[in-house]
């Protein structure tokens, strides 16, 4: 559990720095959306944040087993991506925006969002893994 606590603390630190230095919420769905569709001044710092995520990914994927290549076929991955992109914008946040930042601010809306996406995620895993028996890890 120590890596989880340590990694989580770094995520909390990142959200704190981004709030204090940039006055922005470290919600990754919002950051990606702003990098793609946002206003100029926010757009560049969103791209810089995404670049930071990517650099961490490149380094850890090269030197550790912590970032594996996706296991799912490309079609379900594309469908999942579409759901994640559309859903997070309609719902106004994802695991970081509602989950970390929203809950840290004791937002009831974020709590409702988190319970909903965990419930819906668990239901999806149940249907895919236990009813359809698809892509079950060996």
């Amino acid at each position: 559990m120590l890596p989880a606590i340590l990694g989580g603390a770094l995520i909390g630190l990142s959200a704190s720095l981004f709030w204090s230095l940039n006055r922005r919420i470290a919600g990754i769905s919002g950051i990606l959306s702003s990098a793609l569709l946002g206003r100029a001044q926010e757009r560049w710092s969103s791209l810089a944040f995404a670049l930071g995520l990517l650099i961490a990914g490149v380094v850890f994927a090269s030197f550790t087993e912590l970032v594996p290549a996706p296991r799912l076929p490309v079609l379900p991955l594309a469908a999942a991506g579409l759901l994640v992109g559309f859903g997070t914008r309609l719902g106004g946040g994802c695991t970081s925006g509602h989950g970390v930042c929203g809950l840290s601010r004791f937002s009831l809306r974020s709590l409702a969002a988190v319970l909903t996406f965990i419930g819906s995620g668990a239901l999806t895993v149940f249907v895919v893994r236990h009813l359809l028996k698809l892509w079950v890890p060996s």
Partner: peptide, 14 residues
């Protein structure tokens, strides 16, 4: 909020 989160959760769980 709830519908968007439900859709996101489905993609996340997939």
């Amino acid at each position: 909020l709830l519908g968007g989160s439900a859709l996101f959760g489905a993609g996340w769980g997939l």
